[in-house]
Amino acid sequence: MNAGQQPLVEFHDVTVAYGRRPVLWNIDLAIANPCLFGVIGPNGAGKSTLLKAALGLVPVVGGYVRFGGLPLRQVRGRVGYVPQRETVDWDFPVNVMDVVLMGTYGRLGWLRWPGRRERAVAAECLERVGLADLAHRQIGRLSGGQQQRVFLARALAQEADIYLLDEPMAGVDVRSQEQIFGVLAALRDAGRLVIVVHHDLRTAAEWFDQVALIDRRLVAAGPTAAVLTTENLQQTYAGGIELLEQLGQAVAERGRTE
C-alpha cells in the first residue's frame, strides 16, 4: 500500500545512554502508515526516552530517527508532542487558553504574537477535547484529566501530521481517558500517525492498532493482537510483579475481542 515510500517514522539502530548508563539498545522500528501506535513496557524500560530521542531531547549515541526519510530539523513543524503531565508546574501563572496557544508558537516564530487565526485554532482545539468553557481558567484549578486534555489541545494546535504522546492516560479518570482516546482515534482516521507511550496493558490491547513492546531493547512490534502474546509479554516484563495482574487481564481481553 505504501510501497516505495519512506516510513512515516523510522528508528534505525537507535541507542541512547544517560551518562554511561545505556537506556535503549539498538532499537529498529519503522511505522509505515497512519495508525494508533502504542509503546508498551515496564517502568524504566525507556519508553519516554524513545519519544525524547525522536524529538532530539536526549542525545542519540548510535543510530538515527527519520520522519518520512527526513531528519527531525526539516520536519519539526509536523511533529506534535505531549510531554508527561507532571513535568511542568501547574501553578504557573497561565490560563488554559495561554497553554493551548503555545502550540502555535512553533509556526509563529520569533517576536510574533498569536493573532485572531491562532486564537481560533486554539479555541477549536479546546472544543475537540471538551474544554471550551474552561478557556480562561488558571491551569492549577483543573483536575488531572482536564490538565492532560489541555496538553492534548496544545499538541492539536501544532497542526502536526505525527503526534508523540508520553503517558497521556497517567492519573486520568476513565471519562477523560475515553475522551482522549476518542480524539486520538479521530486523528488516526484523518490520516495522522499517533504514537502513545502507555503503561496499561488492558487498555492497550483494546485501543491500539499496532504496538511495540520495549524493555530497553525492542521485544516485538506489529499488529496488536500478534504482538501481545504471552511469550512476548513474559520477555518484556521478565519477572515483574505487575505482569501477574496485567498479563491475565490482557490475554483475557484479547481473547474476547478476537
Partner: peptide, 17 residues
C-alpha cells in the same frame, strides 16, 4: 513569549524547535 514558554515547559519548547 519565548522566555515564558521555556519557563513553563522547556521540553515542549525544545521539541518545537
Amino acid at each position: 513569549k519565548e522566555l515564558l514558554l521555556v519557563a513553563f515547559d522547556p521540553a515542549f519548547a525544545a521539541a518545537t524547535g
